[in-house]
């Protein structure tokens, strides 16, 4: 068990981070080159000012028309993304790992709060899954890719929660948790999770067109 743990937190972690970082860089660079070659009539209009204007306005809950018209989804999405990022980054146990490996240490959130935030992520995943099953307009457009993305994100939080509470065999669960987290990282550049990498640019482009050319809000 110890050897397995060493493996998943050692070489496998390096591999996962490597795939995530290099994969994301590769996707971004190749997408940019494609845009330069094929979308000159789009990138010519990119503007920092209007990109940021659009991004900021969409980051404010209930600011955009779409957020206002779907309040439950808005709350779920914002809570989900906030907890999805903050929990793993500032979790005490994770910061300890950074400290052990590289001697890097920074602020943490209390375990109790992290526990609740983990539950928020799990609950939001269940809510998203429920929408995919029940709401006709979501069910109609749901593909296996979307389920895959949801499961990949849910897995590390579910296993992390179970491991923390030592509900089932802790040693096995913590290894599962690490692997699930690594799968998530490695999947980011190559699944629907790539919206983490690309959404800022699609948003920025729309903001640039609407702000710079069309003189209208895009939120």
């Amino acid at each position: 068990m110890n050897a397995a743990y060493q493996f998943v937190t050692g070489p496998l972690a390096w591999a996962a981070w490597g795939i995530f970082l290099l994969g994301s860089a590769y996707r971004l660079i190749s997408m940019y080159q494609l845009a330069k070659a094929k979308d000159p009539t789009a990138i010519a209009y990119m503007s920092w000012h209007f990109s940021l204007r659009s991004i900021i306005n969409w980051l404010i809950p209930f600011n955009a028309l779409g957020w206002r018209k779907s309040p439950a989804m808005t709350i779920a999405t914002f809570a989900f993304h906030a907890c999805l990022f903050l929990t793993p980054i500032f979790l005490v146990a994770h910061v300890l790992l950074w400290d052990q490996a590289f001697g890097v240490s920074y602020a943490t959130i209390p375990d109790g709060a992290a526990d609740i935030m983990t539950l928020v992520v799990i609950a939001a995943c269940l809510y998203f899954a429920g929408r995919r099953l029940v709401q006709p307009e979501v069910r109609y457009i749901t593909t296996p890719q979307d389920w895959l993305a949801l499961i990949i994100v849910l897995a590390p939080f579910l296993t992390g929660f179970l491991a923390y509470h030592q509900a089932i065999d802790y040693d096995a669960m913590i290894i599962l948790h690490v692997v699930a987290g690594e799968i998530m990282l490695a999947a980011i550049p190559f699944t629907r999770l790539s919206h983490m990498v690309f959404a800022v640019f699609t948003r920025a482009y729309m903001g640039s067109e609407f702000g710079g050319v069309r003189h209208a809000r895009d939120w």
């Binding site: 779409g66 749901t142 640019f201």
Partner: peptide, 11 residues
């Protein structure tokens, strides 16, 4: 990018 990043959220 549109084809890939559409999260099929239905909003």
């Amino acid at each position: 990018a549109y084809a890939e990043t559409c999260m099929r959220c239905g909003l």
